[in-house]
Write a protein that binds this DNA or RNA. Structure first.
Lengths: 212, 212
DNA sequence: CCAGAAACTTGACACTTGTCAAGAAGGAAT
DNA sequence: ATTCCTTCTTGACAAGTGTCAAGTTTCTGG
C-alpha cells in the first residue's frame, strides 16, 4: 500500500511538473512573439534585449528569467517563426483542382505575404546569414530551410500532378530558384520598388509551366 | 599675363588636389581591405571599429579620419568587394572553346571560391540582408546584385552560344537559381557538410544543359 | 631649414550592451 | 495565517560601443 501511495504521489507530482513546464513554455512563446516584433523592425544586429522589452509589455528581466541568454531567445524565435511559415500554401495545394487554380492561389498568397509580412521575411534572411557566422543558429536554420524546400516541393509536385507531369528538377534546385526570386523581390520591395511584386508574379507565372 | 599665371597656378593647385584625392582614396581602400578581414570573420553584427583596428596595422582613430562613420566605412568595403567579385569567371568565359571546357572551368572556379573565400561570401549575404533594414546600404547592394546577375548571364549566354542555343529563362531567374544554390551550399559548407560542394557541382552540371 | 598643413595617435566622453543579484509580489499548500 | 516556491521588477555592474577633440608626428612647399 505504501508503494501505491508513493506511486500516486509521484504521478501527481509529475502531472504538476508537466503543467508547470507547459505554462513555462507558453510564456516563452509569448516572449518570443514579442521579440519577433522588434527583431523584424530592427534586424538582429541592432536589436537589444532592452529594446525588445521596451517595445513589449514585459521588463527586460523577464527575458533573462525565461531564456538563458540572447541566443537562446533568438533560437526560440526562429523555431516559433518556422511553424507559422511552412503551412502558408498548404490550403491552396489541398483545394486546388486545376493548374490555373493552383497558380492563382499560390501567386495571391505569395504577393500577400511579401506585402504584409515583409518584416518577418527580412528577419529570416538576416538570421540565415547570421547562421553562417554563429554556429548556434545553424541547426535550426538548416532545419527550417529543409522544411521550406519541402513546402515548395509540395506545390510543384501538385502542380505537376494536375498537368499529368513530373517536376523536371530536384527539390533543392527548385527551392533555390524560388527562394532566390523571393529574396530579390523582397529587397526591391523594401527599397520601394513598386514593380518588384508584379514582376515576381510574372516571373513565377512564366516559370511554373517550364519546371513542372 | 596675370591671367596666364593664375591659370597656371590654378592648374598646378588642381593637379595637387587630384593627387591628394587619389592618395586619400587609396588609403581608404587599404583600410576597407583591412576591415573586410574582420567583417568576414565576425559578420556585420559583431564587428566594431575597435575590433577592426586591432586586427589590422591601424589605430581606431584612422578609420574615423578617413570615413565619416561606420556605415561609410562598410559601404566602401562593399563597393570594393564588388569589383573583385564580378570578374571571377570572365577569363573562363573568354577562353573556353566548347561547352565542356566552359562547364569545367566554371565549376572549378565555383568550387575554389566556395572553399577559399567562404568568409567573403558569407559577408556578402550578411550585408545584403542588412540592406533590407538599413536604407543606406540599398543602393550599393542592388547595384552589386545587378552586376552579379550580369556575370551569370555572361556565362549562360556563352554556354548557350557554344551549343547554338539561347538561354531559356530571364537573367533574373537564372541569377536567382544560381545564387540560391550557392547560398545554400555555402551555409552547408560552413556547417562542415563535406557533401555541400560536390553536390553543388553535380546540381550545376545537371542544370546547365537544361537552362541554356 | 622652417612654418603650416596633412596624417595619425591617444585618451576621454556619453551611451548602450548582456548579465546578474537582491528583493518584491503573487499564489498555493500546509 | 504562515511558509515556500514561482514569477517578476529593479537597479547595478563591467565591458564594449561610436564619436570626437586635443595633441603628436610626418610630410611638404617655400
Amino acid at each position: 500500500m505504501a508503494r501505491q501511495v508513493t506511486g500516486a504521489a509521484r504521478r501527481v507530482a509529475e502531472a504538476a511538473e508537466v503543467l508547470r513546464d507547459e505554462k513555462f513554455n507558453a510564456r516563452r512563446i509569448e516572449l518570443a512573439e514579442a521579440a519577433l516584433e522588434t527583431l523584424g523592425e530592427l534586424g538582429f544586429a541592432r536589436t537589444s534585449l532592452r529594446e525588445i522589452a521596451q517595445n513589449s509589455a514585459f521588463t527586460h528581466g523577464v527575458f533573462h528569467y525565461y531564456f538563458s541568454d540572447k541566443l537562446d531567445l533568438i533560437c526560440c524565435c526562429v523555431r516559433h517563426y518556422k511553424a507559422k511559415c511552412v503551412t502558408r500554401y498548404d490550403e491552396v495545394v489541398a483545394t486546388a483542382t486545376s493548374r490555373d487554380e493552383l497558380t492563382e492561389g499560390f501567386l495571391a498568397k505569395l504577393a500577400a505575404t511579401l506585402q504584409n509580412e515583409a518584416r518577418m521575411h527580412r528577419l529570416w534572411y538576416d538570421l540565415r546569414a547570421q547562421a553562417m557566422f554563429e554556429a548556434a543558429f545553424r541547426k535550426d536554420v538548416l532545419e527550417i530551410d529543409k522544411s521550406l524546400e519541402a513546402m515548395i516541393w509540395r506545390i510543384a509536385s501538385r502542380y505537376a500532378e494536375l498537368g499529368g507531369k513530373r517536376p523536371v528538377s530536384s527539390p533543392a534546385a527548385l527551392y533555390a530558384l524560388f527562394d532566390g526570386l523571393f529574396q530579390s523581390a523582397l529587397l526591391r520591395h523594401l527599397a520601394d520598388d513598386k514593380t518588384a511584386i508584379p514582376e515576381l508574379l510574372d516571373e513565377v507565372r512564366r516559370l511554373l509551366p517550364t519546371v513542372c
